[in-house]
């Protein structure tokens, strides 16, 4: 053994291999099984994908670094369930690239914020949080209401996610920019086709209220309103546990 180690150390390459070997084990043991696992991620029938507009909103959430202050992961603790709603299931972030579970709650958890407040509330809150919550220390995001949403590359976004295994159809990929627009313009001719592609449960309305253009605010509010509502699995499981 010592002879071996001596040689190992003489040739630093061997030493490096030893470090790699020793250090990789933990990662392999913990992570590798997660990829073959079926139990980690529950299969549920009603899990839907993000619409192009919601995905664009999610990317704004990513861009602005919201994860630094807001988690999207309700733990299996009584107080969290009572404060935020049923605890998060793995399946709920199945299509989250990357996951936004977060690690810090300077602000509250957002895993089930969808539908909790009105669109108007969100818009006012995002423009200046202290207008609606005087004690808040959240920054304002006024530019979201001014910036036109970029939609021309949305097909690329969906295509990339399709490569990664998200069940977007080719039709969804091809129509992504149009669908993003349609979701915030319920009266437009494209709205019906959009709903047909993404399901009747899709929110179709003027999120930010501005009827002239599609803004980043529309996208972010659309995303916030869908949080925790991609599937009912968590609610169903919660009521099953009560019974």
């Amino acid at each position: 053994m010592p002879e071996f180690h001596r040689k190992l150390e003489r040739s630093s390459i061997g030493f490096v291999l030893a470090i790699v070997g020793v250090a990789s084990i933990g990662g392999l043991v913990e992570i590798a099984p997660l990829f073959t696992i079926d139990e980690t991620v529950e299969t549920v029938e009603d899990m839907r994908v993000y619409t192009p507009l919601e995905l664009a909103g999610r990317n704004i959430y990513v861009r602005e670094g919201c994860y630094a202050c807001h988690s999207q992961m309700i733990r299996t603790l009584r107080d969290e369930v009572e404060r935020y709603g049923p605890y998060s299931l793995a399946v709920e972030s199945q299509y989250d690239y990357p996951m936004l579970w977060g690690s810090k709650r300077t602000g509250p958890d957002l895993a089930r914020v969808g539908g909790k407040y009105s669109d108007e509330w969100h818009v006012a809150h995002l423009i200046n949080p202290r207008d609606v919550v005087p004690e808040s220390n959240m920054p304002g995001y006024g530019w979201l209401a001014r910036n036109q949403l970029r939609t021309d590359d949305l097909s690329h976004h969906l295509a990339a996610m399709q490569t990664l295994g998200v069940p977007y159809t080719d039709e969804m990929v091809a129509n992504a920019p149009r669908d993003a627009f349609a979701q915030a313009f319920p009266d437009s001719a494209m709205a019906d086709a959009m709903v047909e592609r993404y399901g009747a449960a899709t929110n179709v309305r003027a999120f930010a209220g501005d009827r002239n253009t599609l803004t980043e605010m529309d996208a972010l509010v659309a995303y916030l309103q869908i949080l925790g509502r991609l599937t009912d699995a968590a609610h169903e499981q919660a009521s099953a546990e009560v019974e």
Binding site: P2, H5, V22, G26, V29, A32, P33, T36, I37, E39
Partner: peptide, 28 residues
């Protein structure tokens, strides 16, 4: 490879590996 096998292998082999390595380092 099914999940149970992989987990079983990972856990048992991981433990064996840990002990073997510790002994090796101590001998050295």
């Amino acid at each position: 490879i099914d999940h149970e096998t992989l987990v079983g292998f990972a856990k048992s082999w991981g433990l064996f590996y840990l002990i073997a390595m510790a002994i090796g380092v101590l001998i050295y």
